[in-house]
Design a protein around this nucleic acid. Structure first.
Length: 876
RNA sequence: GCGGACGUGGCGAAACUGGUAGACGCAAGGGACUUAAAAUCCCUCGGGUUUUCCCGUGCGGGUUCGAUCCCCGCCGUCCGCACCA
């Protein structure tokens, strides 16, 4: 009945069909067991899955299957992050509709994921481009609006004049649009914003509660939120200045250095700069130059500090006779602080560069410890370290912290035009989230613009605002904008002709709440069923790439709070545990003429112990290049379909998990996959042998007393405990090493059996237990093989329903252990002794060892360190 | 520039965060079985000596009975942020 060779091509589809027909992985919201929600970041339906998906979903599936086996009601759903630009680009290139392209891709990828044997509840599948999903998003947008979480304001954006759309910063490469290549302009557009900055402090504080998140991600978010404590200070404009303005307000985190001030600088976009530019062509030209410079990384890196002296002078807050020149400077940002700074060249590198360029000099006001203030001079390098105040009148001698407080205290208590001259302020780098996109393939923003009534929400009864289907992509720009009828509607308030908002939402909105929708995707009249969502959420284990460390994960954290504020949820944090997996990388191959070759075009051979690559087509030698992330450009990709077709899903999953720690990159190699495939066969043979000798399935295990049988039991229980521990900690690579140790040990035991008499009933019972346990322990990684083995072992039900093997602690514990004996820290021998032997016994036994005696050379040991169950160290 | 991580055999890695360094695997070499190949099985596999030991976790110091792990100083690789006042 069972063949000698395991054939995944037959068994994998068989068991996939079984799971599907039996509804094995359908999850009930009212299941009696404790709940566990495991989620992998849902894919963008780009066309085909790649090996990164295989890795991501294999990991999630191990967790899901393991948790199910250990008694949890597991939610493990899948969906599609289906809106986005690639669908529109494909529409333009192939003259298809984005929806057609997207749903075709979804169909393909769904089939591919199913061939992986993932234990997903497909009945909960969602696609964000489906009106049944985005209608709820529109509802929530309106709820957010009603609760003051939405803002409409002008902001600067990257505008691609050829494609006629706003581009994200990531889509601007060297100042040009990534698709059109056109020089990107900075435009002021009125945009919709979600007020994530209202939650800056909360999002920052709550990071501390996320103790199952990688430290790295928390740090990245912390830096991104960018909290700083400082002082707002109002500077008077000197009367002689040619402006109507009376004062300029600056934000500083270093009020202690106020006596080192040499200039003031304002942003080119500062209102004062704009008003001064009127009738000042030189200044206007400079402001224009600043705008052209753009904000790309490359320009910032090389940009010189440039400024333009406005002629305006301000007076020092502590000395009316001390004036400072006001420059418009290219390095001052409008949207951080107040768009104006005071420059203290001695203690800020940027200010120093600027001051040196314009001959403004510097005065050190913080003197480093152990340096004589009289000789302390700043030339090219600003000093931003600790020290004592100098050259600062009433601050002299203070620490930086005291000086900051003293300046704040004095200025806070001084009034200017009836208001305090200064105020302490906390600032954040985090900005509000601009969600408007001039794109078709996104969730329409449910707003109608009326000349009389302004921006009016679409009435709830009219939701969803569906995307029109009859659109064309033969021209750049937003098809919604030029659609003949779609945008023309009556104002819901006054009934006059009005127009729809034609911007759609950033696709990051779609992915900010999908995890909540999965808890009740059938609900029609609301985004969530709050009771159900609150029971499932937060997601217990979220798994995905590190590239989402900031945007997606921060947006989701905000969205969860916003949904709670609007009554859709009752929690703050969406993801209790986060795991960021490494990439899948592969060798690269390059022919002598510089062409990249795919792994499938390569024949690997070993000549004189050296690995060499040859082209299958031409036979010529190909140079083996560095290991890099799989990418189309380097052609070092491997297609999951090919791998699954050749080796089976179990082999692919096993190899993905076995070689590297899951948070590190894994090198995909043909040799490695073959090793995994060999192991599949090895297990199949081992289970076959065990099935022959094992006691019948279901025989109770009791009163095992024979040594050989007990050895097998101890082996089994010991490994079982370790494997569970490794999976719990997501250490899949070491879990797999333990499984291999167990199967190796069992193979050896069977191989050592000399005669049939050794196979006593007790021995057969122990084999039964070991075989069952082994299968159930590799089942999370190789579920199809496990089902087939389970059947071969004579079980009637499926392995997917079997509980995780129960560990008997008494059997798992080792009674005899070996303890190393060191002399002066170097291992000289070892004691095999009963567990928990006391220190005196260990010491006596250790000193008896020949090797120890030899080194003692008749003398007494100076000292003997004994750590029970660990080590003995004899000091001579 | 700021912040963070990492550095262990030919390769991926492990080591219960102070207690036998290199588990498990890949590659390689040798052997068995085969007419042969595949498959399978057995042995070797950090370096030097080949009977005893010595050296080895990027480099140099330190703490300790004992350091891959802790501290100080270097070198290198990778990642994130970046004119944030």
């Amino acid at each position: 009945m069972f063949s000698d060779r395991y054939n995944p091509r037959e068994t994998e589809p068989k068991w996939q069909r079984f799971w599907e027909e039996s509804g094995t992985f359908k999850t009930r919201n009212d299941g009696p067991q404790p709940k566990y929600y495991v989620l992998e970041m849902f894919p963008y339906p780009s066309g085909r899955i790649h090996m990164g998906h295989v890795r991501n979903y294999a990991m999630g599936d191990v967790v899901a299957r393991y948790k199910r086996a250990t008694g949890f009601n597991v939610l493990h759903p899948m969906g599609w992050d289906a809106f986005g630009m690639p669908a529109e680009n494909a529409a333009m290139q192939n003259n298809t509709h984005p929806a057609t392209w997207t749903y075709q891709n979804i169909a393909t990828m769904r089939g591919q994921l199913k061939s992986m044997g993932l234990s997903l509840d497909w009945s909960r599948e969602i696609a964000t481009c489906d009106p049944s999903y985005y209608r709820h998003q529109q509802k929530m947008f309106l709820d957010f609006l009603a609760n003051g979480l939405v803002d409409r304001k002008k902001s600067k954006v990257n505008w691609d004049p050829v494609d006629m759309t706003v581009l994200a910063n990531e889509q601007v490469i060297d100042g040009r649009g990534w698709r059109s290549g056109a020089l990107v302009e900075q435009r002021e557009l009125t945009q919709w914003f979600l007020k994530i900055s209202d939650y800056s402090q909360e999002l920052l504080d709550a990071l501390q509660t996320l103790d199952r998140w990688p430290e790295k991600v928390r740090l990245m978010q912390q830096n991104w939120i960018g909290r700083s404590e400082g002082l707002l200070v109002r500077f008077d404009i000197a009367p002689s200045s040619k402006t109507d303005a009376r004062e300029i307000e600056v934000y500083t985190t270093r009020p202690d250095t106020l006596f080192g001030a040499k200039f003031m600088a304002i942003s080119a976009d500062h209102p004062l700069a704009k008003s001064l530019a009127v009738g000042n062509p030189g200044l206007q030209a400079f402001i224009d130059e600043c705008h052209r410079m753009g904000t790309s990384v490359a320009t910032l890196e090389t940009a010189e500090k440039k400024g333009y002296d406005t002629g305006v002078r301000v007076t020092h807050p502590f000395d009316p006779n001390w004036t400072l020149p006001v420059y418009v400077a290219n390095f001052v940002l409008l949207d951080y602080g107040t768009g104006a700074i005071f420059g203290c060249p001695a203690h800020d590198q940027r200010d120093l560069d600027f001051a040196n360029a314009y001959g403004l000099g510097n005065t050190p006001v913080v003197c480093p410890p152990d340096v004589d203030p009289a000789t302390f001079v700043i030339t090219d390098t600003a000093y931003d370290g600790d020290g004592r105040m100098i050259n600062s009148r009433f601050l002299d001698g203070m620490t930086i912290a005291d000086a900051k407080n003293e300046v704040a205290r004095r200025l806070e208590n001084e009034t200017l035009d009836g208001r305090p001259r200064a105020a302490r302020q906390v600032n954040f780098k985090l900005r509000d989230w601009g969600i408007s996109r001039q794109r078709y393939w996104g969730c329409p923003i449910p707003i109608i613009h009326c000349e009389d009534c302004g921006s009016v929400p679409v009435p709830e009864d009219d939701l969803p605002v569906k995307l029109p289907e009859d659109v064309t992509f033969d021209r750049p720009g937003n098809p919604l904008e030029r659609h003949p009828t779609w945008k023309h509607v009556a104002c819901p308030q006054c009934g006059k002709p009005a127009t729809r908002e034609t911007d759609t939402m950033d696709t990051f909105v779609d992915s900010s709440w999908y995890f909540a929708r999965f808890t009740d995707p059938w609900r029609e009249d609301a985004p969530t069923t709050r009771r159900v969502a609150d029971e499932w959420l937060p997601v217990n284990q979220y798994i995905g790439g590190i590239e989402h460390a900031i945007l997606h994960l921060l947006y989701s954290r905000f969205f969860t709070r916003a949904m709670s504020k609007t009554g859709h949820l009752g929690i703050a944090e969406p993801f209790e545990g986060l795991f960021t997996q490494g990439m899948v990388v592969h060798e690269t191959y390059r022919s002598p003429n510089g062409d990249w070759l795919q792994p499938s075009e390569i024949d690997m051979r070993t000549e004189n112990g050296v690995r060499k690559a040859f082209s299958l087509a031409t036979g010529s030698e190909i140079s083996i290049g560095s290991v890099e992330k799989m990418s189309k450009s380097k052609r070092n990709t491997v297609d999951p379909d090919d791998i699954i077709g050749t080796y089976g899903a179990d082999t692919a999953r096993w190899f993905m998990l076995s070689d590297s720690p899951p948070d590190r990159d894994v090198i995909w190699s043909e040799e490695g996959v073959q090793g995994a495939a060999r192991y599949v066969q090895q297990l199949w043979r081992l289970i076959g042998q065990l099935a022959e000798i094992a006691a019948p399935a279901g025989t109770p295990i009791e009163n095992i007393s024979e040594a050989a049988a007990l050895d097998i039991r101890r082996l089994t229980h010991r490994h079982c405990a370790r494997i569970a521990d490794h999976i719990e900690r997501l250490r899949f690579n070491t879990a797999i090493a333990e499984i291999r140790k167990l199967s190796n040990a069992l193979s050896k035991i069977l191989g050592d059996v000399q005669s049939p008499e050794q196979m006593t009933p007790q021995f057969r019972l122990a084999c039964r237990e070991a075989a069952d346990a082994l299968v159930l322990m590799f089942a999370p990684m190789m579920p199809h093989l496990a089902e087939e083995c389970w059947e071969r072992l004579g079980h009637s039900g499926a392995a997917a329903y079997a509980p995780w093997p129960k560990v008997d602690p008494a059997l798992a514990r080792e009674d005899t252990i070996s303890i190393p004996v060191q002399v002066n820290g170097k291992k000289r021998g070892e004691l095999v002794i009963e567990r928990d032997a006391d220190a005196k016994l260990l010491e006596a036994e250790a000193l008896k060892l020949d090797d120890v005696q030899k080194l003692l050379n008749g003398q007494a040991a100076k000292k003997v360190i004994v750590v029970p169950n660990r080590i003995v160290n004899v000091v001579v």
